[in-house]
Design a protein around this nucleic acid. Structure first.
Lengths: 342, 342
DNA sequence: CTGTTAGCGCGTTCAG
DNA sequence: CTGAACGCGCTAACAG
């Protein structure tokens, strides 16, 4: 009982304009030579019929989609907004169209290995984090389908270009900042184990400690999940087991938010009793009390870079294997300064 | 210099499995009767070749896309996250795919009146606010293309189904609440003039005043734009010209945030000197200081309703002309209570 | 239960 | 500069 729809085709336009379908196709695609007069007639016919070319048929016939796709695990994230802004901006500047598909962790059809966005309807794909698994990435890449990875490194053995932040560097500098502020017992509230951003951030924390001749105490590294609730619980326990910690560096701002709640529950103050730092500079961070000191991640720039790389890849067959975007320390009020002796 | 890609077609699968393309099509679409044994052979061939059907060709041949589209002015909004979650959830429950396109106010191609998402690649469209103009809506609808409007009423003369909040009711109740709290000089910080949600909210405010025998003072209704910066400026002026106002009801939480900043700049306190209320219950609102009293808009539910209506429309040809989702007062701390005499 | 075949709407040779 | 004709990959009758 599906509703049916009737739309004019290129043949209707051709008839109305008194030309052949080939000519209509030429004016639509601005290809080949057509008389100004003929162009006008065809355009008039198109307008009169409100004709729109069938994209499926075009892709089928031309083998190009002039569209790029974005596959993401979820669209429901605060930073997604910025990412998308960057991607869209670049895509449209290049006169492409963007289609977005969120997987939400749904598995692929195990019989028909199809993604809603693929070579059939896009000329290339931006793959955000682990929305598509290694095996499929491999297959797509083997077939020379243009791919750019965002916040995820390429499967072993492939050279799929990828774009990400200088996570390690940012975490290193924030940790160094905390040390410079006089803190020594600095805990790290980690992110999801499988998340590469989180891994690099933890690595930056560790290296900064070592570089400043401070011990890396495993008891001070607690697992988190880029989630405020999880962080809150974790920090409540941390505060009990390690009452002497002076600062907490959270792997992302959401976790920092959870940590803040936990610290407050424990009756301590930020930053007087304990310093707190985050990572991302998400929208919320400036509204926390106290405003959160954090590492700003250039999310919009990452979106722009990914789109630019992909379009370049589509056109030239080449892209930079790795694009690393610099991060920036944003010092607000949650870190304070430890007056006491180190 | 476009990269080229080669992929197996249904013919390759048919050859590999030793059957006809029709049979392959049958197992892919689970249509018609096929021997279990044949099914297995075909599936093996599909797996071996990593075959994926060409969506353009399928749509062309079957005249169905099993996909619904969402057209939105922008994807960069805090509440968009919730809206999308609702839509996606429902879409996937019905075994459809969702494709999203953000217009960002870009005009259509004036020669070829094409939308990136249309009857060629979707079975129906959810149109969010004014991302598509009346004329195009009319055309699509005339051709019986399934459409559901979200936060936007149908063009005059059409009966395109639409989904929205009980904006007027929510604003009415919030205004009544402010009055019950003892406030009399209640300003309204309006939204964009062309935004229907904003219009209804203002209407609710006005009606509540009238119902409580309070005068509607035009000097207390100031234009805003669902934007914190605009609101801040507007409220700074308002506070100077109308120093006796007791409460401000902002048409959305973003504006409330701007108002809060303006009030603070003027040296007044919320809620002791002036009460503040918002609308939407956006993510930020609970983090403001004081936490914002607001009207919770059921955004995710709106997304679910829109998707459900559209899918029903696609399948049965009918949908509810109007779906109104109820709002809910969220009383936090920004409104206080006026002890003084009314 | 399976194969043959005719389009779906369009872009693209190739003639003229 | 323009038209005829083929084929892109697939589904949907229709046969058998």
């Amino acid at each position: 009982m599906t509703t049916t729809t009737t739309h004019p085709t290129i043949a209707d336009v051709a008839r109305q304009a008194g030309v052949s379908t080939a000519t209509v196709s030429r004016v639509i695609n601005k290809s080949g030579n057509v008389t100004a007069d003929t162009i006008a007639r065809v355009q008039a016919a198109i307008a009169a019929l409100d004709y729109a070319p069938h994209s499926g048929a075009r892709i089928l016939a031309s083998r190009r989609a002039r569209t790029i796709g974005l596959i993401t695990p979820t669209i429901s994230d605060l930073f997604f907004t910025d990412l998308l802004r960057g991607i869209e901006q670049t895509v449209y500047e290049h006169d492409y169209t963007l289609l977005v598909h969120a997987t939400h962790g749904r598995p692929y059809d195990n019989i028909i290995p199809t993604l809603p966005l693929n070579h059939h309807n896009t000329d290339g794909l931006i793959i955000f984090t682990n929305s598509v698994d290694d095996a499929r990435l491999q297959k797509l890449h083997e077939r020379h389908f243009p791919l750019v990875l965002l916040h995820r490194s390429p499967p072993a053995g492939t050279d799929i270009p990828c774009v990400t932040f200088e996570n390690k560097d940012g975490a290193y500098r924030m940790t160094a900042h905390l040390i410079a502020c006089g803190y020594r017992r600095i805990a790290f509230l980690a992110g999801p184990a499988e998340n590469e951003d989180a891994q690099w951030r933890e690595q930056g924390y560790r290296e900064a400690l070592v570089a400043h001749v401070l011990a890396v105490d495993p008891a001070l590294i607690v697992p988190g999940d880029f989630n405020a609730g999880v962080a809150e619980t974790a920090v409540i326990h941390l505060l009990q087991s390690q009452p002497d910690i002076q600062a907490i560096f959270a792997a992302d701002d959401e976790s920092a938010r959870g940590a803040l709640a936990a610290i407050r529950q424990s009756g301590r103050r930020v930053p007087q009793d304990i310093a707190l730092a985050g990572f991302d500079d998400s929208l919320l961070s400036q509204y926390l009390h106290p405003p959160l000191t954090t590492v700003r991640a250039p999310i919009e720039a990452a979106g722009r870079a990914a789109a630019a790389q992909l379009i370049q890849l589509i056109h030239t067959g080449h892209a930079d294997p790795l694009t690393l975007l610099p991060t920036e320390l944003v010092i607000r009020e949650s870190c304070g300064w430890r007056e006491r002796n180190p």
